[in-house]
Design a protein around this nucleic acid. Structure first.
Lengths: 328, 328
DNA sequence: GCTCCTTGGGAGATCGATCTCCCACATGCT
DNA sequence: AGCATGTGGGAGATCGATCTCCCAAGGAGC
């Protein structure tokens, strides 16, 4: 009743363990087709499954990649993790996801746990641009690490991110093309590199005195707070760019309750193109990240020699997805 | 530069590998305190981390638990996975989450992958009560498996679930206490055991001719469709029980757009108490699952001897969380 | 003072797959 | 014919931690 081992397969097929391994692991395949057939047949018949612990011990690789995200409460990060999982699985690996609870201390702990555990490499979406660096730097001494979607200063590590500046430009150009010129920004979490970049790009384009509502966190509730503030001054504003979809959702629902029409009086855009945009009428214009391409690139870097992961930021082009919230 | 091994620690501490292992792994701890101190000191100084592949190979256990959920697009399952992760981590383990894309074929594949890979045990939230059984049964021959939140017929395996009948009773009693008697059900996914149980409990309590809107899937979009249908006949209805929060969210937003007031004209309840309930005004009354207790129980069963996992359903008590959508 | 236990600790075997030699045989060339 | 070259395949070492003996030293009991 005990699980069959490679040895059992080899004996059943009348070959040595080495040959059985060559066939089943697919290493330099110089094996007589007839023997290969016999090995495969025996493996199937016995229901053989390779013991990953043994393989990992011998080869020193586990086929597992870890990713630490700021929080799974934001559906964007669920989507992001899912995109990575697709790529990892396509390559025959497995993904382990950890939640940092938006806290750099928890983040550092999760990183350590994953490294202790059994990952070949680690992707990190750092909680904070300023404070996540050291933990990442320490991790990178133990295993390949690539930052994803956000960067962190002093991390010593490459980051694969969205070009947030270009994204902001896309949104502003789109709104201005619709003849909306009194544009406000609703943003949160300037601790993250993406939040900071989006804010900076907005200020750069619209001037420092443009209306800006900064919130403590990327949540729908924060979006609601912003909605109340915007509603108060809605006659001076005809468009709102939100730094995240979750903000836009709360904002739109509050505006509508305050009898401010979207997009009639105020056009609204989100950021990240998560599925929750479908929650409300009207659907919300947003920015889509090329997550599949970003994930592919990040995984490539993870397997590349260390010097290719030198600290820098690689930016991927955003795509504007126009919906009724700006187009009505 | 190569990572220190147990042997290195043992030599640095002047003891044998066996003793070092006894100290660091915490096995039958009959070790001289002085030696133990030296081992721990050496381990710290060298930055020793135990090689989990080697341990797994020797002991035959990985300390990893897997969970397969129907879809991560529904935030309820994200919360559920998170609750399990908490418990697993508290026990010093790691959780691997897989998404079955609401498809029993994908589900079967994910189960196999997880088992091949490196899990000691598996929790499954089966996609379908009728069709997920065989894959679960097959899995249970290879490793301990416990169903979670839903059951599946012919799975041969214990399920740790919510008492959906009691939950439905809580909701109906609550609504009737508020003098709402013309209650409709909006539900989806009768393929899942939870969906089927909720529908059955509703029909049992309200009679077969009560208004029931059945939808093809548990999504917000489906909720919107339901909203349109309910709005058409809103004079004959004064309350709607939704079989899932995501449905309630779509429903409420559509009712409001149709100028049907919630809860003024129609009270609405959700199911699962996910955080998206905060998305809309008013916040929505819902049913909270005791996820922590359920997760703890499921993990206990996973480690128990096989006979304790005989096919049956264990039901946990729901809690009614009253919010403004039924209380305005 | 002697035997019998108890208890701490070490030597070596072990988990299962892969990898490194190295051998045997066949093929091609002078 | 004799030698170099190439190719398939096996024996045994190896990855690192744990577990199973078994031995030695110290204490208890007579």
């Amino acid at each position: 009743m005990t699980a069959p081992r490679l040895l059992d397969v080899a004996e059943a097929a009348g070959v040595s363990r080495a040959t059985a391994s060559r066939v089943l692991a697919g290493t330099p395949r110089n094996v007589d087709p007839e023997l290969a057939r016999r090995v495969e047949e025996a493996a199937r018949r016995l229901g053989y499954r390779t013991n990953h612990s043994a393989r990992a011990l011998r080869t020193g690789t586990t086929g597992t990649v870890g990713v630490v995200v700021p929080t799974l409460a934001n559906p964007y990060f669920v989507q992001l993790a899912d995109a990575i999982a697709q790529q990892v699985r396509a390559a025959g690996g497995q993904l382990v996801v950890s939640d940092a609870a938006n806290d750099t201390a928890v983040e550092a702990e999760q990183i350590e746990t994953l490294l202790d555990g059994r990952v070949d490499g680690l992707l990190v979406v750092p909680v904070s641009a300023g404070a996540s660096g050291p933990a990442v730097r320490a991790a990178a001494r133990r295993a390949p690490v690539v930052l994803f979607d956000r960067w962190a200063t002093d991390s010593g590590t490459v980051a694969v991110t969205l070009d947030n500046t270009a994204a902001m430009r896309l949104l502003l150009d789109h709104l201005e093309g619709l003849d909306r010129h009194r544009i406000a920004l609703v943003a949160a979490d300037q601790a993250s590199s993406s939040g900071a970049e989006r804010l900076a790009a907005f200020t750069e384009a619209r001037g420092a005195d443009a209306t800006t509502v900064l919130l403590p966190s990327f949540t729908t509730d924060a979006g609601r707070t912003a909605g109340r503030r915007i509603a108060e001054q809605h006659t001076r504003i005809d468009a709102v760019v939100c730094g995240a979809d979750v903000l836009a959702v709360g904002l739109v629902s509050t505006l509508q309750r305050s009898a401010v029409s979207v997009p009639g009086q105020i056009a609204v855009t989100g950021f990240d193109d998560t599925e929750i945009l479908e929650l409300l009428d009207p659907p919300i214009t947003s920015i889509r990240h090329p997550l599949a391409a970003m994930a592919e690139r990040a995984l490539t870097l993870l397997q590349a020699p260390g010097r290719e992961r030198a600290e820098r930021v690689e930016r991927f082009p955003p795509r504007l997805v126009v919906r009724a919230s700006t187009d009505g």
